[in-house]
Design a protein around this nucleic acid. Structure first.
Length: 560
RNA sequence: GCUUCCUUAGUUAAAUGGAUAUAACAAGCCCCUCCUAAGGGCUAGUUGUGGGUUCGAUUCCCGCAGGGAGUGCCA
């Protein structure tokens, strides 16, 4: 059991649950104060006493033992000093026992979580605007699975809409199958951009595009064959990116999948009297909830984005019986999801409360926002190529004798891209800059990978015995132990907040603590007991860092 | 106009309402006879603005300024 829960249990405060107490226990800013601390200020309201008095009375009651050796009152804080050596022993044993499962739990108890993420558009190249949803969603999938949930990753493909009519028109006018098969998304992108240029001069192209889209819907063979070709090429291309990023999906049911499932939802909305007709369109009025209306059907009777998402939500609930259904989509669509979730609630779906929009910030370029139509994008492939290239150059410079230079460079380069995208709180907007992803020093992925490589090197070179007694710890050793002990709660927190960046930051913190320890303490020392302990510490760091990076979808390297 | 999000050092960012606001990058300096210097250390530098709630506010509430997003037939 972790020490926070242990202390919380021993404190046994009637007004609060053990979990609540454990969660409010923090680590003091200055280690001379203690190793854990309970701020008693919030308790003063409930217990109607001054924080100091509460702290003092809790201290009176608290019996120290072999784990928690001292309890003291400073201001309104109750500070605990633990037996650091015993703690180190506990933590190291646990990490050794759990290995790749250190930090994992069965807390989710097999409950299902659907994660709608990445959700790319057919015929569009994968650019850095798609990176956030892909890596955040993928990390959340891995984190929840690690915590014992059954995860269903869904790539809600953008495979429906007039843009496919546009593509067919463009294809027929300016391309051919051979070129498309050869140049793939580049070619599709080229003709898509050309369409919009030409359509400015000749608006009749738009009408033609609408006609072709209607043909797709009617099941016209030729149009559907072309559409199928575009889809096949896109998926094959994007799959390469997903492989690099270690991203997988359980379902590719996209927009077109719900074409035949929307009528039922619309009918249900009608039956429940939620639909009103306004200017010829069918809407669900949401005035009572301070929201603009949710559009269900256009005045021509055709469906909309919200209609499709309602149908998808119902389908997912019926199919997966989810505990939570996550949508990893940028904050541009905050209102959309608020509306959709509210409509589900009004439909009387008790599971409407389990729908979560995991909203994140937008990526733009220094020159402004991206636009596929104008061809103003930075392709992820190009970014990865450049980070890999840079990694290769650094290896040539620093470690020219390395065996698998190419493979290492690839791991470091792609890791840098993923890590970079998961570094900040997800709500922050990002202005893409090559300088930033190509930075390999400080709080970066290469820094963490380098730390793992250092661990590997030590483990290869320094001999150790399995059995040892934990010696009196130096500050830098304890800092590593303390960081190691924080991993499980960090994973839980990342899941609760849908915030993978907590793991990213954790990896940095642990790596920092380790590198300080590495400089301060000689591992290959004469003293066999001390050496064995330190080697075990190194091994534990490697395990925790590897687990953290794995949750982010980043592969470690043996050396670099 | 209305709704909503954001604003912390030169830059990019941390901080469940808690102890002296924390890092990295950039700048200047120091450390490879030693387990990987993609490392470690030192110096300097921060909460947009005006109120309020509170024992205590970067955090919560109300103004203001600046920026992003959304706002009925795109997704």
């Amino acid at each position: 059991m972790d020490y926070k829960s242990y202390i919380a249990q021993k404190l046994d405060i009637k007004e609060l649950s053990v979990k609540e107490i454990a969660e409010s226990i923090e680590i003091p800013p200055d280690t001379s104060l203690g190793d854990f601390a309970l701020p008693c200020f919030p308790l003063s309201k409930i217990m109607r006493q001054s924080p100091v008095k509460i702290a003092e009375s809790l201290k009176e009651k608290f019996v120290t033992d072999d784990k928690v050796v001292k309890c003291s009152v400073v201001g309104g804080y109750l500070n605990f000093t633990i037996d650091r050596e015993k703690y180190a022993d506990d933590v190291l044993r646990e990490i050794k026992k759990d290995g790749a499962l250190y930090g994992a739990s069965s807390f989710g108890n097999g409950k299902t979580i659907c994660v709608d993420y990445s959700s790319i558009n057919i015929a569009k190249p994968f650019h850095i605007g798609h990176l956030s949803t892909t890596v955040i969603g993928s990390a959340l999938c891995k984190i929840f699975a690690f915590l014992g949930y059954k995860v269903v990753g869904i790539n809600h493909l953008g495979d429906y809409g007039t843009q496919f009519g546009k593509l067919i028109v463009a294809f027929k006018k300016w391309s051919d199958e051979e070129t498309v098969r050869r140049d793939k998304l580049e070619e599709l992108s080229r003709i898509y951009v050309k369409f919009h240029e030409e359509a400015k001069k000749d608006p009749s192209l738009e009408d033609e595009a609408r006609r072709y889209f209607a043909l797709i819907e009617k099941g016209d063979e030729e149009s559907n064959r072309l559409f199928g070709l575009f889809k096949e090429i896109t998926l094959a291309e994007v799959d390469k990116i997903y492989k690099l990023l270690n991203v997988t999906f359980d379902s590719y049911a996209g927009e077109s999948f719900y074409n035949d499932k929307m009528d039922a939802v619309v009918e249900e909305l009608r039956e429940k009297g939620l639909i009103t007709v306004s200017d010829g369109a069918s809407i669900v009025d949401l005035k009572d909830y301070d929201m603009p209306p949710c559009l269900i059907l256009k005045s021509d009777g055709s469906s909309l984005y919200a209609t499709r998402d309602l149908a998808a939500a119902v389908y997912r609930h019926n199919t997966y019986d989810f505990y939570k259904c996550l949508y990893v989509v940028a904050y541009q669509q905050d209102l959309h999801f608020k509306q959709v979730f509210k409509v589900l609630e009004l439909m009387g779906k008790p599971w409407a409360k389990d729908m979560v929009h995991v909203s994140y910030g937008m990526v733009s370029l220094e020159s402004g926002s991206m636009s596929t139509r104008e061809g103003k994008v930075v392709l992820l492939k190009d970014v990865i190529d450049r980070t890999v290239e840079k990694a290769y150059k650094v290896i040539e410079e620093k470690n020219p004798d390395l065996k698998d230079k190419e493979e290492t460079a690839r791991a470091v380069g792609t890791g840098a891209v993923i890590f970079g995208a998961l570094s900040n709180n997800k709500i922050k907007d990002i202005v893409f800059s090559y300088d930033r992803v190509l930075s390999f020093e400080g709080e970066t992925c290469p820094y963490v990978l380098y730390t793992v490589a250092r661990c590997n090197s030590v483990l290869d070179k320094v001999s150790a015995k399995k059995e040892f007694t934990v010696p009196a710890l130096t500050d830098s050793e304890y800092a590593v132990i303390s960081a190691l002990g924080r991993f499980p709660e960090t994973v839980v927190s990342a899941a609760e907040k849908y915030e993978p960046s907590l793991i990213t930051r954790y990896a940095i913190d642990l790596a920092k603590a380790f590198n300080k320890f590495y400089i301060d303490c000689k591992i290959a020392t004469e003293d066999e007991n001390l050496r064995s302990f330190r080697v075990e510490l190194v091994s534990a760091v490697k395990t925790a860092l590897t687990n953290a990076l794995t949750l982010l979808g980043i592969k470690t390297v043996k050396e670099m």
